[in-house]
Design a protein around this nucleic acid. Structure first.
Lengths: 152, 152
DNA sequence: GGCAATTAGTTTCATATGAAACTATCTCCT
DNA sequence: AGGAGATAGTTTCATATGAAACTAATTGCC
């Protein structure tokens, strides 16, 4: 017996996980950006570069791209501006003339030392909404989803 | 007794929730976009408009903006292109000449009927990585985080 | 050694984006 | 009625973005 409604799909964005993920991520990212963008005249890609270089000086632009999940054009532009503003120092690698080693200057480190605690504080405030158990779940769930999203 | 390392912050992006959220969301969104962008020559904002209009015909552009969390400029442009391609129909509201009522044409509905199941399938595949309990947690966690992100 | 194929990073170019200004319509108040 | 806001949606403009082409340096192969 045929059923006229069998093929009617219902994609309700309000319950669609990829969509909810996107809205949540945008909200959180802009909230964090507000804490530094104006005060330090820093774009999101620039801040991401500073964040990884603060924890791992001497990375190449390619390394930074890998760790931040940005593309190399974005990194190239962010680093160019950071160097121009004397926040990052660039030295050509001794063994490979194509590679530029990057590290924070004193000015760059000062920004890192200012912004990083604010960012961590904001993350903490966000996670305050969750119970300890939920925080654990979130960690596991994100790891699983990220892996699954990779090979989907 | 002073402690020299007391102020050294460690912001490791790999464990920073806002950052992980952003990477995950981008991965998932591009995976979905791949299923329709080329085949239907559809941008992400256009698809979002089609998605809400498929479920709720007669919305105004402003309604669409609210439901998709896009800004009105984005919606205006996406709708303009959709109308041009005869995928969406626009009629001036009878009671208010400023408002345009939007709905899918047959062509637009055909796209919706094609893409929506694919999108839902992709969501299902993504969630396959989680246990039923975890799926429930994810739902609650996202609701809580979203609320918290709102007033932070 | 020297030339083809790789790789790191930059630049170009065409398109996407959002804030602010704008147009058209409507609502409220007197 | 009519003029001061308010509101829906569009356009403009300056900036951001990413794919593809490019430059420079390195490696591998004959």
């Amino acid at each position: 017996m045929p059923n006229d409604t069998a093929d009617i799909v219902d994609l309700d964005l309000a319950h669609f996980v990829p969509y909810r993920l996107s809205v949540l991520s945008n909200r959180v990212s802009s909230a964090i950006a507000r804490t530094y963008s104006e005060r330090f005249d820093l774009t999101i890609p620039e801040w991401r570069c500073i964040a990884v270089l603060g924890g791992a000086p001497g990375l190449s632009a390619g390394d930074v791209a890998l760790r931040t999940a940005m593309d190399k054009v974005q990194v190239s532009r962010a680093v160019a501006r950071l160097v121009e503003n004397k926040r990052v120092q660039r030295t050509v690698d001794v063994d490979d003339g194509r590679v530029a080693r990057l590290s924070l200057t004193a000015k760059g480190r000062a920004i890192y030392d200012d912004v990083a605690p604010l960012a961590l504080e904001l993350e903490a405030k966000l996670l305050e909404a969750l119970s300890p158990a939920e925080r654990g779940s979130l960690d596991k769930i994100m790891a699983k989803l990220n892996a699954q999203a990779g090979h989907l």
